[in-house]
Design a binder for these strands. Structure first.
Length: 417
RNA sequence: GUGGCUAUAGUUCAGUUGGUAGAGCACAGGAUUGUGGUUCCUGUUGUCGUCGGUUCGAGCCCGACUAGCCACCCCA
């Protein structure tokens, strides 16, 4: 029996890694232009980091965490998400004391023990960004606008930005009561699942997919009608600023988030191309989280996007790969020895080039060059070594020119640029 | 955790009523001694997911297990 990777843990193979690099690069560029800096955080944390922040009763904490005791019986957990870790670091390192507003982004693997399926894996990757120290709606609009800008830069269209407001603790409490009252009045029509949710997490009814529940939603009370004046004003300003930034959005008062720490603004970027996994990015405001980590009261907002899902949406026809520019086809020991040194000089000049390790036939070496999609092939055979010349072939036009081996490094640099 | 589908060469898949395996792609070599991506020829590759059962005989039938995919739940 061959040893295989752990279920839901995937290799990112050489043919796919250019896409990942492309996405990372665009993310870095875009986020930097909005004033964000990268923070690199650990993959393993003490379990309480997540248990406390995400919510004890959420599925993530209840049944999806990779938790294990270390050799000293301390409970550790492979991070299921990034925000809680960033907040822990923010408080621990007193980042709040450095600047009034701090903008951070991160990139890396997350772990959740779920049954894998399309667009969902046990190890998956997120790119996330957080703004600390800004309660103003301008921050909400800016970060949502940034993520949409990022998707545009990556080349994705047809995505929808859905926004909602969950209000503050007080308005949510009021709304929950209203919703429970409404649902209790229609007890016989709600699905089994929602009957269970009624006690545990009634808001979940709003994203139930059962037909009977869907009908009930039409007349269900909207959270947007229940939020207090201050929360309503905040939401209104967010919308105005989004308009000002020309960022289209849709209001979705049935959007609920899976993590407990959100308040006021929440948002999702959705696609209709991924079946059940329609959320490509999601986030929201979490004004209370820093305090939960014993830090100073610091309003914050952030999001995370799923890289695997993004890659599933990426244009497969586009070429993300960087090819080696030059292939050296060398025939015979003398030419090969010469080429081996030449290739070293060219690489030092930052020209990407390759040659074969064995003295294959010219046909075979040309085939290899074609496979590599090299732009040019430098042919040096026994004849060329004798005459002190080399042939360079442009692989797309098939034009070949010959030149002497004197000062060949500079000639190639000129030719290939 | 629940359900459906699948498991044969590196890969994609054929495999007829059960008689111990085949194709395309890929890879390697060649088609007037040294010129690629198209064409043609030749060649290499398999504990037919694992274990057990039925049978004279199992890739094919039955059972269990494992893995993968898809959906539910939930989520990025």
């Amino acid at each position: 029996m061959k040893i295989t990777a752990v279920k839901g843990f995937n290799d990112i193979l050489p043919e796919d890694s250019p896409k990942w690099q492309f996405i990372e690069k665009i993310a870095r560029n875009t986020f930097h232009s909005y004033g964000f800096s990268e923070i690199r955080i650990p993959i393993v944390e003490k379990t309480e980091v997540f248990a406390r922040s995400i919510g004890e009763a959420t599925d993530i904490v209840e049944k999806e965490m990779y938790s294990f005791p270390d050799r000293n019986d301390l409970s550790l957990t492979l991070r299921p998400e990034g925000t809680a870790v960033v907040v822990r670091s923010f408080v621990q390192n007193a980042i709040y004391a450095k600047k009034p507003v701090n903008k951070l982004y991160y990139f890396g693997p997350m772990f959740r023990y779920e049954r894998p399926q399309k667009g969902r894996y046990r190890q998956f990757h997120q790119i996330g960004a957080e703004i600390f120290g800004a309660a103003e709606p301008m921050a909400d609009a800016e970060i949502m606008s940034m993520i949409m800008r990022f998707f545009t830069e990556v080349g994705l269209t047809g995505l929808s930005l859905q926004i909602n407001s969950l209000g503050c603790d007080e308005c949510r409490k009021v709304y929950k009561e209203k919703l429970v009252e409404y649902l209790t009045g229609h007890k016989e029509n709600i699905c089994d699942n929602c009957t269970r949710r009624l006690k545990k997490n009634p808001l979940r009814f709003l994203d139930c997919k059962a037909a009977s529940c869907n009908e009930l939603k039409t007349n269900a009370p909207s959270i947007l009608d229940s939020i207090c004046g201050a929360c309503a004003d905040h939401f209104k300003s967010v919308k105005n600023y989004l308009d000002a930034l020309n960022t289209p959005y849709e209001i979705n008062d049935q959007m609920v988030r899976g993590l407990d720490y959100y308040s006021r603004t929440t948002f999702e970027v959705t696609t209709n191309m991924l079946g059940a996994q329609n959320a490509v990015a999601a986030g929201g405001r979490y004004d209370k989280l820093c305090e939960m980590f014993s830090g100073p009261k610091t309003p914050a907002i952030g999001f995370a996007l799923g890289v695997e899902r993004l890659i599933l949406l990426l244009d497969t026809s586009k070429d993300y790969e960087r090819k080696t520019k030059l292939f050296i086809a060398a025939l015979g020991q003398e030419a090969r020895d010469f080429s081996f040194k030449l290739i070293n000089q060219l690489r030092a000049k930052n020209i990407s080039c390759e040659m074969t390790y064995s003295d294959n036939s010219l046909k075979s070496q040309m085939r290899r060059a074609g496979k590599n999609e090299s732009q040019h092939v430098l042919i040096i055979g026994e004849d060329e070594m004798k005459s002190g010349s080399a042939i360079i072939r442009d692989m797309s036009t098939k034009e070949q020119t010959s030149f002497s081996l004197d000062d060949i490094t500079n000639k190639i640099m000129e030719y290939c640029s």
